[in-house]
């Protein structure tokens, strides 16, 4: 077990931080599930954190000069390199503290990006940072497409989903590939902590983020982040979809602590995936046959994770 976890009692409904390290006035769309997840991440981390943001929705909506929604030190350089920028910040603090040039004080280093910045264009930078063992946490806010540029498909777009570059048509049913298993790729680096989270389960999310920050070394949290604009869903339903994705087993919640898979929430009586698809324009074109094939895949993938959790 990880010794750093022992001193952490966990967040509960009673001790949720009131402070908002991410300020209001940001330009996120109405009902944005991503900024909601980011708000929870920041609540869990507090103010002793330096944030390295990848280009994307969260960067754009939080920093139109001369304004910033960030109450904590924040840097944005480019799309793919947040993990490398964070490596630099962490290395600098290490050297400067050792050389007595800044006070010795632990500060969390958070690198944060969307699913494109994490699973596609930025994969190498994260892999490098994890392999080198920097003490930082990387949070992926997964809204399952390139939303900031106008809803193009990414490697994390689910099978069958309609995006502007995976449109259904006479010869297409939408996204033709299965969602890339990014948390598994991160876990394969042998880093001490990997977790998945969903803003509907806010206590679980915040506890995982805090644990990821406490770990000495690299940690990764993959957070499901509904996007009403990109998914063609009602803004008011963002939290509901965050819950349905878990209840249908589409987005299982688990931790991988030092290689051991631990289910955060076992879904024994799953709802059908159709319940989750309803009301999302991106899945509207799917046939019953396609939906049942997706249902099969969801069941198979869920079983795999259950097996992993039983193995260890």
């Amino acid at each position: 077990m990880i010794p750093e976890f022992e001193k952490f009692k966990g967040f509960s409904a009673k001790n949720l931080p009131k402070d908002e390290p991410l300020a209001p006035g940001h330009r996120a769309c109405q009902g944005c599930g991503e900024v909601l997840a980011l708000r929870m991440v920041m609540k869990a981390l507090g103010r002793d954190v330096i944030v390295c943001n990848a280009t994307g929705c969260m960067e754009i909506i939080s920093s139109p000069f001369p304004q910033t929604a960030w109450n904590v030190p924040w840097i944005h350089v480019a799309f793919e390199n947040a993990a490398a920028v964070a490596s630099g910040v962490e290395s600098a603090r290490k050297a400067l503290m050792r050389k007595g040039r800044i006070p010795k004080k632990h500060v969390d280093i958070l690198a944060v990006g969307g699913d494109g910045a994490t699973g596609d264009i930025g994969l190498q930078w994260i892999s490098g940072a994890f392999e080198r063992g920097h003490d930082l946490l990387y949070v992926c806010l997964d809204n399952e497409a390139y939303m900031n540029t106008g809803v193009q498909r990414s490697g994390c777009t689910p099978y069958g989903a309609m995006t502007t570059t995976s449109p259904p048509g006479k010869k297409s049913f939408g996204q033709a590939t299965w969602k890339k298993n990014v948390p598994a790729i991160m876990a394969a680096h042998g880093i001490p902590y990997v977790a998945t989270a969903s803003p509907a389960y806010y206590l679980d999310l915040m506890n995982k983020v805090k644990k990821a920050a406490l770990v000495n070394g690299p940690a990764y949290v993959h957070i499901y982040s509904p996007c009403p604009t990109g998914w063609g869903s009602a803004g008011e339903r963002s939290v509901e979809y965050s819950k349905l994705a878990v209840e249908t087993r589409v987005f299982p919640l688990y931790e991988v602590i030092e290689g051991r898979y631990i289910m955060s929430r076992k879904i024994t009586k799953p709802k059908p995936v159709l319940d989750y698809f309803k009301g999302q324009r991106r899945f509207r074109h799917l046939t019953d046959e396609q939906i049942s094939s997706i249902q099969n895949k969801v069941d198979v993938e869920y079983e795999k994770i259950i097996k992993l959790s039983e193995m260890t």
Binding site: I75, G88, E90, S91, A92
Partner: peptide, 12 residues
């Protein structure tokens, strides 16, 4: 170069 940016921004 990305790492350099983070490091320099942190004051090293």
């Amino acid at each position: 170069m990305s790492c350099c940016c983070g490091s320099s921004a942190a004051g090293a």
